[in-house]
Design a protein around this nucleic acid. Structure first.
Lengths: 268, 268
DNA sequence: TAGATTGTTAATCGATTAACAATC
DNA sequence: TAGATTGTTAATCGATTAACAATC
């Protein structure tokens, strides 16, 4: 069992992953990000009555390469059959299990403005096992309002709501200014995953994951590529420092957006 | 007509770079994705009257490392002063120019449901030079409604609206089923950048960029990490194929979501 | 068997990081 | 000058890709 580990003399030993028998190496983050994509495609295939699928078919439906599909799936274990393909059902089961979708997760949404309303009404939420069990807002005029049958509660009840409902995922749709404070309160009460729509960087303790969605960022990235398409393909910026502040940009305080912010913690 | 090559968004073709004298190497995609972040922080600093900033300060405000900041900024040219730092104004100007934010960009939003409404009302949009000049919807009952002063037009006018307003960026907030068709029409009329909120993969010809925002995907990624935190830290899935279809998952047809789908085109 | 498709390897690519010489 | 901070290098890490042996 003692697989002799090769260590180049003098070179510090890489971090040791203590893996007992039967443990897989951790699934790469890039793979994790694609699993939901595969899952969606597979669910659609299952609905259509398809029961086998090749990496190639799955790949084109998901918009990735077949090499990626095979590599990704092999990270979860080997569920395919050479010369044949993958059982759709088996794959759906594996991926759902991998993503922890076998149990419902309770979600608290903070900030019931335009975006908050839109998210609360979003069906793809609950259909995937995410249950918005509560809405919280700071604006007294919104308290008591019902969105999709869920009552809007005052901010002061945030902690009570989290505790009472065993909530582990928080969605922040507040203005930028309020986000960090809300985040702190969520984390203090036991929330360990946060989806942040406020255009601000959240700081969280290790072990808490934050994903950020920022519409303005997405548009600006598109704008970058647009700029390169329109003009002759040359660089828009000279090497000389540009004249001061040509654009009408502000710090931005509305909650909305998209793009991968990073995640905070490791695995405790 | 040259047969337009279909490229599923997300599968990038090898990048061809023809660099003449005086051209910088292309800015790495990872850097591009961070520039909007820096811009936001810098704009806030400028508002506060700060006029110099170090990579270290900028880094912590943006939630990245200072090495990244310096590397990223050096890709745009050298705008800092050793021992001193960067002029906030200069940096704002450079980044804005790099992102092509010096000219306003016209945006068409298709699908004025919950999310579409929320986006149309989002302020961070116009404050960054993105002007939603039109809203289009397939539902006759929504036609004529005004959102933030912009009238909702019937789907049939899509092409006319794009042409009349010189629109290059389209935002798709339709249900999944309608998205590809809308996408095709947008592209056919000259739109070269698409922000897709529909939970489906869009296929576009080369030269068109697609970014995808998928809330369900974001939540599922969080769920993955949640699963690893709750349980003992061990793997949730056994190596043996899991029992069939434990999770209530559907193909999902509402428009919403987040997560980096990739971008389609290179640089024509 | 012959054809198809997986699982895995090794090469490559791009991004991150640490470190430090340059220089204000 | 002495202290601070950039710009750049080289090492490292992680992800992608192509290719193909294994095998159904």
């Amino acid at each position: 069992m003692a697989e002799p580990r090769r260590v180049v003399a003098g070179v510090a030993e890489p971090r040791r992953v203590v893996a007992g028998a039967g443990t897989r190496p951790p699934v790469p983050e890039a793979t994790v990000a694609r699993l939901p994509l595969y899952l969606r495609v597979l669910a659609a295939l299952a609905d259509s009555g398809v029961d086998m699928v090749s990496s190639d078919t799955l790949a084109s439906a998901a918009g990735v390469t077949s090499a990626k599909v095979r590599k990704d799936l092999s990270q979860l274990g080997s569920y395919g059959t050479r010369g044949v393909g993958y059982h759709v059902d088996v794959l759906v089961g594996c991926i759902a299990a991998e993503l922890g979708l076998t149990e419902d997760r309770s979600v608290l949404l903070v900030g019931v403005g335009n975006l908050g309303h839109a998210l609360a009404r979003y069906g793809g939420f609950s259909s995937r096992g995410f249950r918005i069990v509560a809405l919280v807002d700071a604006d007294p005029r919104r308290i008591g309002e019902r969105v999709e049958g869920i009552e809007v509660r005052p901010l002061v009840e945030l902690e009570a709501v989290v505790s009472a409902n065993n909530i582990t995922i928080g969605v922040i749709c507040t203005p930028a200014g309020a986000a960090q404070q809300i985040c702190d309160r969520l984390v203090a009460t036991g929330v360990t995953s946060i989806l942040n729509f406020a255009p601000t960087v959240l700081s969280v303790p290790e072990g808490v994951d934050v994903r950020k969605v920022d519409l303005a960022v997405e548009l600006q990235i598109l704008s970058f590529h647009e700029a390169r398409k329109r003009s002759d393909g040359g660089r828009p910026t000279p090497l000389v420092p540009a004249p001061p502040v040509p654009a009408p940009i502000d710090a931005g305080s509305g909650a909305l957006g998209t793009a991968a912010q990073a995640t905070g913690g490791g695995r405790p």
